[in-house]
């Protein structure tokens, strides 16, 4: 399966060309944010304050890396569970975020918001933080340094691999994939 190379920030045209199950390789800038950073960003936005990061067209990567050993820019840096960020995601999309990288599925409200805002949700392979480390070339903490591993970092990435799970057309890879490979009816609750 060939990967589609995508330069960041994301354009509407690039999003148009992506469908569930596509493999992508992102090059450019990703911003990291987890639970605490999302909460702060949205609190700032709701109070009408300027955000420390311009979110328009950006891709947010849900990651809390390990500390780097000396000589490295970052440690192990794989995705965290996306569903935890579901309560914040529709607002982040309103604020201009166009792409998200995490792991696992999204709830119906988020899926709808992704379609509505013409955005894209990808997974990186969970538990491959050592492999993903190689695609991260530069790291700079840009906001909320006090949050430690949860601070917002600007990552310069090169051919960062991901898989499209929710596209701008309302598709969901996890549902489609499960239906394709399920060999027996699920046990009734």
């Amino acid at each position: 399966m060939e990967s589609k190379e995508i330069n960041l920030p994301l354009t509407d045209k690039a999003i148009d060309g992506l469908q569930i199950g596509d493999r992508v390789e992102y090059s450019g800038i990703l911003y990291t944010a987890r639970d605490a950073a999302h909460k702060r960003l949205i609190t700032l936005a709701d109070a009408g304050n300027e955000l420390p990061v311009a979110l328009q067209g950006q891709v947010i990567y849900y990651v809390g890396p390990t500390p780097p050993r000396p000589g490295r820019v970052i440690g192990s840096a794989g995705p965290t569970t996306a569903m935890r960020l579901d309560p914040y995601t529709p607002r982040m999309l309103e604020l201009g975020v166009k792409g998200i990288i995490g792991k696992g599925g999204r709830g119906p409200v988020v899926r709808e918001a992704i379609q509505k805002h013409h955005a894209i949700y990808c997974i990186a392979v969970g538990g491959t933080g050592a492999l993903l480390n190689r695609h991260i070339k530069n790291v700079e903490v840009v906001a909320f340094e006090d949050l430690g591993t949860e601070a917002i970092r600007r990552l310069e990435v090169d051919h960062f691999p991901a898989i499209v799970v929710n596209d701008a057309y309302g598709g969901d890879l996890l549902e489609a994939g499960k239906a394709e490979y399920r060999t027996k009816a699920p046990p009734s609750p």
Binding site: G75, S76, A77, G129, A130, R134, P161
Partner: peptide, 21 residues
């Protein structure tokens, strides 16, 4: 394949297998 490659990189370069230790 990526999971297997990750294990190899982790072992050889002393990077944790996963950021969630």
């Amino acid at each position: 394949d990526e999971i297997l490659e990750n294990a190899e990189i982790a072992r050889e370069q002393m990077l944790p297998l996963c950021q969630d230790t």
